[in-house]
Design a protein around this nucleic acid. Structure first.
Lengths: 240, 240
DNA sequence: AGACGGCGTAACAAAACTGTCACCAAAGCG
DNA sequence: CGCTTTGGTGACAGTTTTGTTACGCCGTCT
């Protein structure tokens, strides 16, 4: 899976250098030197990660970062910031604003690529083919294999993407609408109830034990809110 | 909200330095230098984040990380690892095993704090803005989860919103009318007595103890005024 | 072409939640 | 004290939400 990177930088020679190296490593690169445009591109191009220079035209990097974090569509888009060496105050402000990692200039292109891979591995494990794991469920995104307690689970493509989304954000509750956005795509119109049916199919597949019996259900229904992946057993809950 | 951090590190002077800085920044710190003990503490102390040195006694950091990820109770506990500078192989292995971030030694304490906040913000939005807490009651609005003294409390949608409103304004008394406005919506007409019923249901759920007995009632009835969330026990209120 | 597998929708069943009531208990009040 | 007002409680019937199954469509593979 090719990852798309939005590079926000206004030093032309640096843009060339970085673009060259990223593309060599198999990333798609979208570029701009303008803060306002960066926000637009982040929405439209749906990049998997943003590299953001702190000193850019038209909007400071920190402001771009803040706005990206505030917009729902980009709220958890990975951001790597670039700062001048030793500028610790900026670095800390950046992390506090919501950047996920930083590089100090000058940097080696190799290291930049390594860090980008690390951030993607951490925040978008699926992109790097790493394994996702949660409470006995394992997903190998490259091999498209899912196991529960060691046994292989058979999933259709949609159920696979659905489970992947849950595994990438364990514990968090998603509305049907959010799931449709994330799993089906922002521009596909399907009934919200469709989510229920796929949840059902996913549960059936994931909770099937070896002998045909049911295992604990790791998908929690939150009435009038949505669904979440959740390891808390019902037995630990207090009855109403 | 105070976050609790488990520090797994065996270099005594580093432990002191980090502990000092974390506590100064408002974190609670639990410490150990032992891998086995780290696993126990992670279960028992329920920390919000673990700082894990890669070189520790009794179990390697990587093994601790792996086991934390495997146990349901700690499967998505944020982990920040500490590695020696330039030890890239370890770093990659760590991230692949499930660490959420890393710091290379030596590091600045300020930056450690900033990174911890960044990780918590990303993985536990609950702790930053999504989580509400009062007198043993915890509400994680992103996970849609409520606990009392650590035990999960099961609430219906209306009770959830009602409790959230109280938690957002602890101690304040709300009339039935205000509650209808805030929780039901300004344009819904329902009987004011309906509030009583939902208060009743909320009390029942929140005050239910593990064995079926009643815990202290945290919802105070203010006669002819309304209700409030209040930790003051009745016995301490009136001097007859 | 025919078989197959996956997908979205509809329809019905089951479960959970909601608002109201009637009735009881407790708290003011003269 | 009795009376009045206010809140607590359990039941209930309607409604909403979710679970589950069935079915037809469509693209792929053979």
């Amino acid at each position: 899976m090719r990852a798309k990177i939005l590079l926000v930088e206004d030093d032309a020679s640096l843009v060339e250098l970085v673009t060259y190296n990223l593309e060599k490593e198999g990333f798609d690169v979208v570029r701009t030197g303008d803060g306002e445009e960066a926000l637009t591109l982040a929405e439209e191009e749906k990049p998997d990660l943003v590299i953001l220079d702190w000193m850019i035209a038209n909007l400071s990097g920190i402001e771009v970062c803040r706005r990206l974090r505030r917009a729902p569509a980009t709220a958890n888009l990975p951001i790597v910031m670039l700062t001048a060496r030793g500028d610790e105050a900026d670095r800390i402000r950046g992390l506090e604003t919501g950047a996920d990692d930083y590089m100090t200039k000058p940097f080696s292109p190799r290291e930049l690529v390594a860090r980008i891979r690390a951030v993607l591995r951490r925040l978008r494990p699926a992109l790097q083919g790493g394994a996702l794991e949660f409470a006995g469920i394992t997903m190998d995104t490259t091999a498209h294999r899912v196991t529960r307690d060691g046994r292989t689970v058979q999933l259709g493509p949609t159920e696979f993407r659905l489970l992947r989304h849950f595994l990438e954000h364990p514990g968090r509750v998603f509305s049907r609408e959010q799931l449709l956005d994330a799993v089906w795509g922002r521009d596909v119109y399907v009934e919200q109830r469709t989510v229920d049916v796929h949840i059902r199919r996913l549960r059936k597949a994931v909770n099937a034990g070896p002998g045909g019996e049911e295992l604990a259900d790791l998908i929690r229904t939150v009435r009038s809110a949505g669904y979440s992946l959740d390891a808390t057993p019902v037995s630990a809950q207090v009855a109403a």
